[in-house]
Design a binder for these strands. Structure first.
Length: 511
RNA sequence: GUCAGUGUAGCUCAGCCGGUUAGAGCACAGCAUUCAUAACGCUGAGGUCGAGAGUUCAAGUCUCUCCACUGACACCA
């Protein structure tokens, strides 16, 4: 048993949650549940990032104060995660007071290390965006691609973090092939780092909505510096004095940061350097997952094709969406959300393959074994399903350990299909016509029921509610499941009662 | 522009160090059928493996060229 800390990004509260955030969070949740089921002590962190210019501007647009805006959006995230059964152990807000203390303390460490300097942030600035833009390569007059207006040159005093001091150390960290996943993203980062690291600014001037930099009037911390530290604040008890020396007693460092590919560099380069500077341990792994498109198109407000997680949940239920997102997309790659495919897959996999398997087997047992799991003394060398279950368990563990959700789902589904086939081959409904076969039928049905139980336990981290429903219908205690115990073949008690089966998933209909 | 990756059945993708008639799931068509949720099962149709050239006894699998798409190339949560 070990301590495992898992993080989602701290979502920027500029806008309400979208499908991308639920995708990351569901995957993280599945991984966290998997680790718990294996008996590990898990600290699953999620939360929100609430500072910065964009927030301030959005609040102004909505004619409210930044903190009110943050309260509203943060609450949306919080309640949405509850509705989705996200099993996070804490929820950090970067406006939490103890976070501010931690940022200050962290800054002082880095500063005393000599990794902070004053410099000037220069660049082409778009007044409309209120952002620095990358200098355009080919045109001499830089133009904002959004506002199509000329950019103006700005030169602002900022504090800089001396990332360049960590060039070789970062390169060494990247030597570890496990540190950044998937591999393609790792290559990008290595390439990026090899071109030479430049210092980056960690403060802004004249931006009110941020944490003030101690000792530098008018400076507030740039959101990234602030936000990344939320992973640490999340672990510390609220309201008490913070002490960075103690964080290893609070499940630091994380086993994994699960993030979208867009923010990989911050987590895989800037963040490790910051931690090195502060003499803190590094996360063991950073996983940059892919993005989702919808029916082949990017999702965006301008296209008006965003999928609202709340609407999805109300319409289809969490299990259906969780299964689709985890089973059809390779986690490291981009995926395309297709309505028809979603409906087809969920109905096939969950309702037909798994759900109907439960239904048909339970029905037979109830019919011929007085509403119970068969009791029998039939002796046989035949261990087809037992062996397949055991090999599936090993496979699934391996896949989930590497966040290969799709492969895990497919492996589990294969087990369920095999159980369906096993029934078709053994034909208990024919055997039972001769009374002398009752023992053999009992043996056959028990094998399938037990396989269903294994299937239910294996899908538990992926679709927890569906899993519980199946276990309930098998009269198997679904509280406190532990994979080291409950995945053992033969745990289903003979003669335990079977309730009348009911569909575990109402089939979805295409609109 | 530079670098990297991808391009295989209608859709999503597997195909490791090159080796018999190119695979899976879904979709589609047919058969069978009740233990079951019109489910499960079986069969079938469907691919010039992006294009062209080359290496080889043999290439989806290696090399080169071209085409298309995607990503990275420092302040985008």
């Amino acid at each position: 048993m070990s301590n495992i800390t898992i993080t989602t990004p701290l979502y920027y509260v500029n806008d309400k949650p979208h499908l991308g955030s639920i995708y990351t969070t569901i995957a993280s949740d599945a991984y966290a549940r998997f680790q718990r089921l294996n008996g590990n002590k898990v600290m699953f962190i999620t939360g929100v990032d609430e500072h910065g210019q964009k927030i301030q501007r959005t609040a102004e647009l909505n004619k409210t104060t930044p903190i009110n805006h943050c309260n509203t959006i943060s609450q949306k995230y919080k309640s949405l995660w509850e509705k989705w059964s996200i099993s996070n152990d804490c929820f950090i807000r970067t406006t939490d007071p103890h976070h501010q203390k931690l940022v200050e303390q962290f800054f002082q460490r880095v500063q005393s290390k000599g990794d902070i300097r004053i410099g000037n942030q220069q660049g082409w600035y778009c007044v409309g965006c209120e952002e620095y833009k990358e200098e355009s390569k080919d045109s001499s007059k830089p133009i904002c691609p959004i506002h199509l207006k000329e950019l103006e040159w700005r030169d602002e005093e900022n504090l800089f973090f001396c990332l360049s001091n960590y060039q070789t150390q970062i390169e060494n960290i990247l030597q570890n092939p496990e540190f950044i996943q998937p591999k393609s993203r790792r290559n990008e980062i290595i390439k990026f780092v090899s071109k030479g690291l430049k210092d980056f600014s960690i403060s802004r001037l004249n931006l009110e909505w941020g944490i003030p930099v101690p000792g530098f009037d008018g400076h507030t911390f740039y959101v990234w510096f602030d936000a990344l530290l939320g992973y640490i604040s999340a672990l510390l008890p609220k309201g008490e004095e913070v002490d960075l020396d103690d964080i290893n007693n609070f499940s630091w460092p994380p086993e994994i940061h699960i993030i979208g590919k867009d923010i990989l560099r911050f987590h895989a380069v800037y963040w490790p350097a910051m931690l090195l500077s502060a003499d803190l341990d590094l996360p063991r792994k950073v996983f940059g997952h892919g993005f989702l498109t919808r029916e082949g198109q990017k999702m965006g407000k301008s296209l008006g094709n965003v999928l609202d997680p709340e609407l999805l949940l109300n319409k289809y239920g969490e299990d259906a969406i969780r299964w689709y997102l985890l089973s059809d997309f390779r986690f490291g790659q981009d995926g395309d959300f297709q309505q028809k495919r979603f409906i087809d897959l969920v109905n096939n996999d969950l309702a037909n393959t798994i759900g109907n398997l439960l239904n048909r087997t339970s029905s037979m047992s109830r019919k011929w074994f007085t509403n119970k799991v068969p009791d029998f003394t039939y002796d046989s060398n035949e261990e087809e399903l037992k062996n397949l279950s055991n090999s599936t368990i090993i496979e699934v563990k391996g896949y989930l350990d590497n966040l290969c959700f799709k492969e895990a789902c497919s492996s589990i589904l294969n087990l369920a299909s095999s159980a369906n086939l096993y029934l078709n081959d053994n034909k208990p409904w024919t055997l039972i016509k001769e009374v002398k076969n009752i023992e053999r039928v009992g043996f056959c049905l028990y094998n399938v029921l037990e396989t269903i139980r294994i299937v239910a336990i294996l899908i538990n981290p992926l679709v927890p509610n569906l899993s519980k429903d199946i276990l309930y219908q098998l009269s198997y205690n679904h509280n406190q499941i532990n994979w080291n115990i409950d995945l053992e073949w033969g745990k289903l008690k003979k003669s335990s009662s079977l309730p009348k089966p009911s569909p575990i998933l109402v089939k979805l209909e295409d609109e």
